[in-house]
Design a protein around this nucleic acid. Sequence first.
RNA 1: GCCGGGGUGGCGGAACUGGUAGACGCACCGGACUCAAAAUCCGGCGUUGGCAACAACGUGCGGGUUCGAGCCCCGCCCCCGGCACCA
Length: 846
Amino acid sequence: MVRRPPGSNSYPLGVERYDPQAVEARWQKVWADEKAFETPNPADPATDTSPRAYVLEMLPYPSGDLHMGHVTNYTMGDVVSHFRRRTGHRVLHPMGYDSFGLPAENAAIKTGGKPAEVTAKNIARIREQMLRMGWSIDWSRELSTSDPAYYRWTQWIFLRMFERGLAYKRGAAVKWCPQDQTVLANEQVIDGHCERCGTEVEARDLEQWFFRITDYADRLLDDMEKLEQWPERVLTMQRNWIGRSHGAEVQFSVVGGDEAIPVFTTRPDTLFGATFFVLAPEHPMINDLVRGTEAEAAVTEYVRRRGAESVADRMRDDRPKTGVDTGRRVLNPVTNEEIPIWVSDYVLVEYGTGAIMAVPAHDERDHAFALAFGLPIRQVVATTDVEVDVQAQAYTGAGDDAVLVNSGRFDGMTVADAKNAVPGWLAEDGRGEQKTAYRLRDWLVSRQRYWGAPIPIIDCPSCGLVPVPDADLPVRLPEIEDYAPKGRSPLAAAEEWRAVPCPSCGAAAQRETDTMDTFVDSSWYYLRYVNAHDDMEAFAKSDVDWWLPVGQYIGGVEHAILHLLYSRFFTKVLFDAGYLGFEEPFANLFTQGMIYKDGAKMSKSKGNVVAPDEIVNRYGADALRMYVLFMGPPEQDKEWSDSGVLGPSRFLDRLWKVVDRIAAETSGDPLPAPPADADGGALELLRLTHHSIQRVTEDIDRRLQFNTAIAAAMELLNGIEKQRDGLLGDRIGGQALRHAAGTLVCLVQPFAPHIAEELWETLGGSRLWETPWPIADPALLVADTFECVVQINGKLRERVQLGCGLPKDEVLAAVKALPKIAEQLEGRELVKEIVVPDKLVNIVVK
RNA sequence: GCCGGGGUGGCGGAACUGGUAGACGCACCGGACUCAAAAUCCGGCGUUGGCAACAACGUGCGGGUUCGAGCCCCGCCCCCGGCACCA
């Protein structure tokens, strides 16, 4: 025991004060010395059927400062880990660092150091803070993504993507952040601004590397069925992001030319109402269409002006419609009318085919455009009863059961039927076909920055893009002088490193100088933990198939469409290539809410950051762990309260005192069997104890409701304190107290493992972290009496203790005999009597 | 606009399957201990009326279903998040 001489009057003689710092340091050392939470892989995964639990939290970016979000995230995972361990599972609970990325590089540029050194220092600091929290992590599997032993395998996976045609390089209009001096993935642009630094992004035409995630769009959507338990909001976000729409591609032939321009539409049923045609300003055919025509100058000028606009400006939602007529025409393939081709920026080049058929009567945007430029509007869908007055140029959406008009052979058909019938008819002679479009774009993975995994490709003048042979991996980051971004990768300056012979023909060639997006690194780290130090392969199939999919994944909702979508994609690719036996990485996902202070996200610039270290210094890690979970439902955003942490802190103090006293005043096992012949207060305490087991177990295991689990533990402590004086001195009472105290320490252990371990020892036990989780005795969960609620006309009028299992008529008789109830029933007509067994009685009277 | 989540005391929240609304904690008020303060312990704490027993009201608003609704249904309001000139 860690003991301090008694001194405070709150601790009577013989009881030592709870000193969290000493207790926590002691047990952290024990756990480290005993490697208490290291879990080797099974010796023979093929035959090992033991229960297992892979509990994983999203790995941190090692900024050097642990923040409250980390504390919440990793404490939740730790509670689950402890619980699974003590309910007989082999638990994998690793930790690592997402250590590539801009902050370390920017810090290095600012201070003149090296990114690797900055990163190493930050990792050391954050690890130290993590150790102080007492999380039960298997540190033997620690990894960092910027370690060559790790990124070697990131590069290896890149090459597998390349082999399968899933990694490719092409020129494209991409999003460029002028502040960070690098391109960004679509997922990293929020409302036209860089997700990292908030700078407005620009459009640029550049040769970049992409992952063909669009090939997996359907599986990423359809396999959501295979996920066990994911938050609805995350699934919704992924669905929105992928944005699948079913429709048709229809060919419109250019009048006076040979070519046809395809459009994508989700409303092929309205094809007869297409009265004009619009191209996006970036559409590749524009130049050819207007060359040498009267409209050429005006169209070129319009295209030029749109191109000069910022991404954010183009995304403003209150923009008036602008556009210009090309003077050229296309043929509406069903009406054979010639309709004008316009150019307008309300058509986006990156969605569908970059061209649309405009149906102003039934599309709001086309309608606004038609009004702005005086284009004809033709109604082709009748609303249910009132015909739209076309002369008034109204716009109408129409439900699936509305009926087609002005549509030749389709007149009278419902919208729902026509959506299939029209493309089917067009397909007969090649004018169109059913088609699905997606909002999702391919993932742009190359970055023009230093601190990332080099793309393992060599550009050979004669062979083209040649993969670095697996045996030559890793392609290590070269040492360079200047990390500052200049619009091209800093690696381009490392000329010696860059110059290599082509692996294929031996001619002089150049390395690719871009590095990979850090989201590539974190898309597969959950696999690497399984064989963290294997230098022969990225991971062993037999081992990952044994441990994965991850049983419980926990992290912030901000990764819903970045990391969580990318990881699903990686897993599917590796499955297809035969490296994995599962298609989804995370069976169960839990997204925790954010912690706010004074109504705002904690941030250095707002000065409202509460540092975990300060709270640990003052109240101890156990109190902080309990408080972040006790604050509210885990998935909800929460408001930090400085005084709130006092609740759990006082709880631990009282727990310490009461267990210390009970240990001194009674004797026996740390967790003796409940005395069989208990009655009165002892029985009441035993029942409370077993109800508490039931509640805490359910709350951790089934509901992940840590706040109510902690409340249940607090209620048990209140119950013990209430009964303590009355039960002392009595043999059965003493045993009941010991049983209750031992159980409480057991139940508190996942939340406050240090104090629990210390108190368990006080009670005469050892190694609580390996002690089986207590099981509620069903006999102690049922009572022999209950408090019967008596309602008259649904209003609560009286309560009375009655025996459990009493037949209905006896319950009614007993209730009616109550003076207050008898008085209320006096002279009133009985309408109905409801008896809910062992719960309540409701008497309806007139 | 479409999709998802939410609205309960002074505050964070509980009520899991339609059955005692406000568990647990914070803050606050009163008392004990102390020369005093802090800490600790005991008690109180939805609103209104009442000395009290008790009564009425009360889960964003308006309706409905039910013996009974915070929970289910219909119609709204507000807040948070995602998507959005996506054809």
